[in-house]
Design a protein around this nucleic acid. Sequence first.
DNA 1: CCGTCACTTGCACTGAGTGCAAGTCGAGGT
DNA 2: ACCTCGACTTGCACTCAGTGCAAGTGACGG
Lengths: 173, 173
Amino acid sequence: MRETAVSLMGERGFDAVSVDDIAASAGISRRTFFNYFPDKESVLFDPDPDDPALWSRLIDARPAGEPLWISLRELILEYTSVVFERIHRHKGVLKASPELRSCSREIADRFWDAVRDWAGDDFRVEVQVNAARAVLNTTCPRWDAATGLEGLHTLIREGFDLLQSSHPERTFS
Amino acid sequence: MRETAVSLMGERGFDAVSVDDIAASAGISRRTFFNYFPDKESVLFDPDPDDPALWSRLIDARPAGEPLWISLRELILEYTSVVFERIHRHKGVLKASPELRSCSREIADRFWDAVRDWAGDDFRVEVQVNAARAVLNTTCPRWDAATGLEGLHTLIREGFDLLQSSHPERTFS
DNA sequence: CCGTCACTTGCACTGAGTGCAAGTCGAGGT
DNA sequence: ACCTCGACTTGCACTCAGTGCAAGTGACGG
């Protein structure tokens, strides 16, 4: 189903493929498509139902007293490892259909909302959280998929090193 | 026209107001609405046609040799001064209809694309540009409109101070 | 009075998305 | 073997966004 849609849209582009096309090509009815996916975009950008659990696991793994900036870096390094396949796929989708950037961001919003919930709503904390997101936003599009996960992680570390919080002593429980 | 739409959507929410509603309420035909605005969202989030010129002006005003991080900060301070009204209005719209966040981001994309074009496509440079955007993304929603432009600027400065680039010596021509 | 130019409008169409009711089919229970 | 219940699928009819086209309207200069 997803494969069908990805291949169709890879050829013609997102807008040029209708839901009817996908449904017909996948051998199901148009109505059934909407039973599986809430909208056309979701066939490409799917929130994995057990993502929240994954986030909790990764977040809980952060040792108490670790500086926030380090926690954020490690969180992202581990998260990108786990969802590496998806990053790869989304990168391909966005290359073929850049207009879907907002879908990609909305998916990411959920993750970052979870991080913010954990980190607390202090202004300085939120700046760092959003800066961490900025690092990821910079690295993912620039990352050469051929360099694999290692290449991505190198870029991410570089980005984090570049933006030193001027309050590195700030930690939180 | 815009006023009509804003007030209708302020009451009922974005989705609950159809283009027919807006058109009827504004005394024009549905078709004419789409002559003015390319889509329903645009009635709230309008790219000002001479924004690009404004950006160029602000960007060109940055003195050669100024550290990038400082340039970005000053750019944002001046930009937010000029488009203060719009920031205010968008803040109200987003409060009433948070689902329009992606529209807001797409409008902002244009500005940040211009900044990126100016700053160059070096990785370290782009990280700083995106971090600057992160600061603005953090400050705008937290900003209490009652504190006015001064309050917003204070927050922005605070955010910029928090994220020191670890390469402050980096400038560019 | 006429032509033209800009703007508005109606109409018909495509495509997304939804609610509802009917159909299908397999797993159990009797 | 038969019935039933529940999950899944489907068709149908509907709303709404958005577009292309062609016709209408009105102002303005010749």
